[in-house]
Design a protein around this nucleic acid. Structure first.
Lengths: 251, 251
DNA sequence: AACCGCAGTTATGTATACAATCTGAACTCA
DNA sequence: TGAGTTCAGATTGTATACATAACTGCGGTT
């Protein structure tokens, strides 16, 4: 029925969503640009109903913004929006870590985290880290954070964290990649890994306040380094998601 | 075109959304119950397209849950989900307050907050607070929190706060109402008002950490009292939103 | 008696036709 | 020449028809 890559196993809605998200993230649709339904139909090749669904979901994710008179536009993010999002994420992850500690996460639940931890250890051991190892690191880092958040055992908390994490620049992978542009990248990785170790230790010993503080510091490290990376606009092509950033004088 | 109360000024989608939300919140649709699109069409009187839109948006709000095989069901919340949501809200409001303090909210921006503060003062002065005054208090309290969150000047932070606040039991009004069931209700109101005063003071003096701590304590007060109110199941009919609570052994 | 399979039914996913609203431009009148 | 009005085009909102996938119940078989 469709011309290109018609994988029947996934729905038209999801296909449209993926396609449109790619267009936004890759910068083919610039921030502030209006995107009409018909236009989206042309892009994705599916009809208006699933396209509309996809647009609503992308608005929900925060990539698009509804226009009062109808339709959607690509959302524009300022640099501060991005830094705030990371700080927000860190704050909520701090809450999750504290809850995990206070409610006594069992040793059995901590096991996969420790495994993940030592997996990362192996990777960051090599100093000029290889490209392959680095992408493996990004994946493991995301996994670590996901496992950590699960420990709190609170569906509302996890849900909210996932929401901000859906923003491409608030994901753990994103700021790791951005930081990799800095000369002291390897050292940063080591510090981050120490944070990971500390938060597990805190949870194990039921030190809620410490677990929270560590996760907050973890985020602040990311904020500081991402700011530096944005200042020295080097290797930003590593992170296409940052193409969304526009220094619009919105306020 | 439609039979009942066809107010042309609002869209069918919004009307369906309001109608369905009422049904859920009023308990006409019980937690865990599956709700099909056709059923929703019968209830709302609009056709499938806007109904589907409304269902997606309600899922987004957190009132509904998508069923993997398709369709939606009314989400079931445990008591802990509710308490966690309030704590989560307090955590994010704490972040907002800290940002407001650190970034130096101007005296001009603080003015409406102080106005709101003294308006509430007038209300809580009377000890057996009248019913009218109480509902006015609920409205003013919500307004105060909204104004406070705006002070941080960060769109992502405000957006996330609004998301949890959309959950009926995480709204400031909700826990105020729940607490009103307690015998020491008036005293609680006075303490809460003191929190409000303290956070403004902290922001004015650029004491970020203090502003954050106050908002957290504010939430913890709400958590503690709501827990008590839920224990002594008195006057819970004041808060229909709590009908969503089901102590399902979900885990 | 229990289980596997098939068919009928129902519900959701998708496409498209129609209606209403909004935008923008051109034309007219002061 | 400028402002207001009207008409045309386009775009979104809504409804509905069609297709496909999931569920249910019955009947047959082992």
């Amino acid at each position: 029925m469709n011309d290109k890559a018609a994988d029947r196993s996934i729905s038209q809605t999801v296909r449209a969503q993926l396609s449109l998200r790619d267009m936004v993230l890759s910068g083919h649709l610039r921030a502030g640009e209006r995107i009409s339904e018909l236009q989206a139909v042309d892009i994705t090749g599916v009809s208006r109903t699933p396209v509309r669904m996809a647009l609503v979901r992308l608005e929900d994710e925060g990539l698009l913004q509804a226009i009062p008179s109808g339709g959607f536009m690509v959302k524009a993010f300022s640099e501060r929006d991005i830094l705030d999002s990371i700080e927000l994420r860190g704050t909520m992850e701090g809450l999750a870590a504290r809850l995990a500690a206070e409610r006594g996460a069992g040793a059995r639940q901590l096991e996969p985290l420790k495994q993940c931890l030592s997996d990362i250890d192996e990777l960051v051991r090599q100093d000029p880290i290889s490209v392959d190892a680095f992408s493996a690191y990004v994946a493991l880092n995301a996994r670590f954070h996901a496992l950590l958040n699960e420990l709190c055992g609170s569906a509302p908390v996890m849900r909210q964290i996932d929401r901000v994490a859906a923003l491409p620049f608030a994901s753990p992978s994103a700021f790791v990649m951005a930081q990799s542009a800095l000369p002291e990248a390897h050292q940063i990785l080591l510090i981050a890994q120490d944070h990971h170790r500390a938060v597990i230790d805190a949870i194990e010993n039921r030190e809620g306040a410490r677990a929270e503080a560590v996760m907050r510091e973890h985020a602040r490290l990311a904020v500081r380094n991402l700011r530096l990376a944005l200042r020295s606009r080097t290797h930003l092509d590593l992170l296409p998601a940052l193409a969304l950033v526009t220094q619009v004088a919105d306020k």
